[in-house]
């Protein structure tokens, strides 16, 4: 007799209950604050151009143009939610599935649940206050710590990320015993991110959530470049007990700059031999109409649940992780 295929969920009933409770607490949090829950599509015509984000693709054979269309599964609901903001939605949040075409790991599953919300009239500092309040309410954490990216890298990485030259960046890899072949082929941001992941992140947020803000402008993604220090962007990340929990921006509203960033990404994609991604014309058109000044943040619900339940692997909070889906 062959042994049966293991069909059972990897999450316990306790983890399922914890998830239901957490989702309810999050909805209550936003209800109290008059933030509207919204729903946007998972499939879209455009996708992210970000060189290090790969979207799943699928084919729509029944479009009204008569031709089959390439569609992408969202890596986050950011563009669609910003279109709502441009249409005067006011503050909004969404809990939904996001997809990234990358490996599974301790903290990663290619399909995951994301909480994303936007606050017109907020700066990224005000939004950090609200993320902190959400963590206090759902995880019972104490008030979070705030440091700049530069401070974090200087004190734990031993390097000034905004001033260091290329050779000292490469040398710093050796200082932290990060043994990688041909480090000279990594660009400066790759090196900074590797250093941050290996040498800095494990030391952040051990007791309470740690908010890191002021990332290098070259890692701005969809954040504004800071008015106080143009070497940095108004972007923040939240770290707690080994997890990179949330990523937020004071949102870039300049349609022209947004288009340039997309085109620059696609230029890098061409150079690296990656497929170019069609720029989301609907999103850019909405930005041209006008995005209200706002801050937004995306938070990984599965990771939040791992911290809440003490899980050591994301599979413990997912019923059916990708290998078992």
């Amino acid at each position: 007799m062959t042994s049966p295929i293991p069909w059972q969920p990897t999450a316990t009933q306790h983890a399922r209950q914890a998830r239901a409770q957490l989702l309810r607490a999050i909805r209550e949090f936003f209800y109290q604050r008059n933030v509207l829950e919204v729903d946007t599509p998972i499939l879209s015509h455009g996708s992210v151009t970000d060189v290090h984000l790969q979207a799943f693709q699928t084919c729509f054979a029944h479009s009204d143009t008569g031709k089959s269309q390439q569609l992408y599964l969202q890596t986050s609901p950011e563009y669609a939610m910003k279109r709502l903001l441009c249409a005067q939605s006011g503050p909004i949040y969404q809990i939904g599935k996001a997809f990234r075409h990358e490996s599974a790991g301790r903290w990663h599953n290619p399909e995951f649940t994301m909480l994303e919300w936007y606050r017109p009239g907020f700066t990224h500092h005000m939004l950090m206050d609200e993320v902190d309040a959400l963590l206090q309410q759902t995880l019972g954490t104490s008030v979070g710590q705030r440091i700049t990216y530069q401070q974090a890298m200087q004190s734990h990485g031993g390097i000034d990320p905004l001033a260091a030259d290329r050779q000292s960046l490469i040398n710093t890899l050796q200082t932290h015993k990060i043994d990688i072949d041909n480090p000279e082929t990594l660009n400066n941001d790759d090196i900074l991110q590797l250093l941050f992941s290996v040498a800095v992140e494990p030391l952040l947020g051990k007791e309470r959530p740690c908010f890191v803000y002021g990332f290098p402008a070259s890692q701005a993604a969809l954040a504004r470049v800071s008015q106080h220090d143009p070497r940095t962007a108004d972007r923040f990340e939240v770290y707690f007990r080994g997890a990179e929990l949330a990523n937020g921006f004071f949102e870039l509203a300049d349609a022209r700059e947004q288009r340039q960033r997309f085109e620059r990404d696609n230029e890098i994609r061409r150079q690296m031999g990656y497929p170019e991604i069609p720029v989301d014309a609907l999103f850019l058109s909405a930005l041209e109409h006008g995005l209200p000044d706002c801050a937004g943040v995306a938070l990984g619900i599965d990771r939040l649940l791992m911290l809440k339940t003490g899980a050591t692997h994301i599979a413990q909070v997912l019923n059916f992780p990708v290998g078992n889906a």
Partner: peptide, 14 residues
């Protein structure tokens, strides 16, 4: 083997 992937950035295996 640990998969390291910053939200924005290159993924590595440690």
């Amino acid at each position: 083997n640990e998969y390291v992937k910053p939200g924005k950035g290159q993924a590595f295996n440690r």
